[in-house]
């Protein structure tokens, strides 16, 4: 009975006398939320205005008869799932069959019998409850999936995310020329001591949010952050014909932005451009990542530079010098490459 009390019913019948009768029967069964319509047209209007759990529909009505109302309900995508119980004559088997064919859930024969009314409504409420449960379960799955998808595009470059969604995996692939950028905070350890963890995290968050803004502006891809280190690329999933220049410009802007976020923040940036391999690691928790010499060199450059500058190899410098200002930092030992000349860029020309 509590189920019944929660259900809202619409009774469509052209006989006022039947309204009273049905109301009394439904009251006795605990159905409190009952509305009445005198004809088919009114019923269809009421259905547009509010939601009903069950419709009790008389077959024989002037103007719009029960068949026509039933057909309209079943043709309306918003209401076709509302169960309809037809009210019919006892011997009216042909009409009943027709209604079932048109999608009615059940029928009630006149004169009404309380036991049957109770059973029919009860079964209908129960069936609707199960159906709704199934539906909300499906909806839940759908929203969770949507959330996961959204999360995916936050974690992964969007073209990679789409491939992952579509095929369930991402092929690792090699790129000929990608610009890599590493940016780390000078004296982060010092900064941390004497500050609460919360303060540190909030500060980092503000800074990295700013960095993301800048990379997005340059159409670059954020790869990841590792502690106080921020890592991004140019020309990986978004085409870029001068990825080195892009990462240099981006690096300069980041270096300039950091003190604006907080006077304590100073960053140094290392860049490099060249071939690399990109792909996804992990199965449950995806992590997009890049590998190769280009990545290692860029990371080393970041470690070698001065605060507020963008550091790169001399070979890289030759590529962009026409656009930039900079100075030689000297030679540096790089694993697998021996001694290399390193240049720091301090601004654009």
């Amino acid at each position: 009975m509590p189920e019944g009390e929660q259900s809202s019913l619409l009774v469509v019948d052209d006989e006022p006398f039947n309204h009273t009768l049905i109301k009394r029967l439904l009251d006795a069964e605990g159905y409190a939320d009952v509305s009445f319509a005198d004809n088919g047209r009114q019923a269809l209007d009421m259905l547009q205005e509010s939601n009903f759990d069950i419709v009790l529909l008389d077959i024989e009505m002037p103007e719009l008869n029960g068949f026509e109302v039933l057909e309209s309900i079943k043709a309306d995508l918003n209401h076709r799932h509302v169960p309809v119980i037809m009210i019919s004559g006892v011997e009216d088997t042909e009409s009943i069959a027709k209604c079932i064919e048109l999608g009615a859930e059940d029928y009630l024969a006149k004169p009404f019998n309380a036991t049957i009314l109770r059973a029919r409504l009860g079964a209908c409420v129960e069936k609707k409850r199960l159906r709704d449960q199934e539906k909300s379960h499906l909806e839940q799955i759908r929203t969770e999936k949507k959330k996961a998808d959204e999360l995916l595009t936050v974690i992964l470059p969007s073209s990679i995310a789409s491939e992952l969604k579509a095929t369930g995996k991402v092929q690792p692939r090699g790129y000929d020329k990608v610009g890599m950028l590493f940016c780390d905070i000078v004296g982060f350890t010092n900064y941390c001591s004497g500050r609460s963890a919360e303060e540190v995290v909030t500060g980092l968050q503000t800074l990295f949010t700013k960095f993301e803004e800048i990379t997005t502006k340059y159409n670059m891809e954020k790869i990841k952050t590792i502690g106080d280190e921020f890592m991004a690329s140019a020309g990986l999933t978004n085409p870029d014909y001068e990825p080195l220049l892009t990462v240099v410009k981006c690096g300069l802007e980041m270096a300039a932005a950091a003190p604006e976020v907080s006077a304590d923040w100073k960053v140094r940036v290392g860049v490099h451009a060249g071939p690399l391999v990109a792909g996804i690691v992990g199965d449950q928790k995806y992590q997009f990542d890049v590998w190769g010499d280009t990545v290692n060199v860029a990371a080393r450059m970041a470690g070698a530079g001065n605060p507020g500058a963008v550091t790169m190899t001399h070979d890289s410098w030759l590529e962009i010098e026409s656009e930039c200002q900079g100075k030689m930092l000297g030679k540096m030992e790089i694993k697998g490459k021996g001694e290399i000349d390193v240049v720091e860029c301090t601004g654009l020309q």
């Binding site: 006892v90 088997t93 009943i96 069959a97 029928y107 024969a109 049957i116």
Partner: peptide, 14 residues
């Protein structure tokens, strides 16, 4: 019963 008859027809119709 006449109700059962209608039910049976509803099934055949399905």
């Amino acid at each position: 019963t006449s109700i059962e008859k209608s039910d049976l027809i509803a099934f055949l119709t399905s």
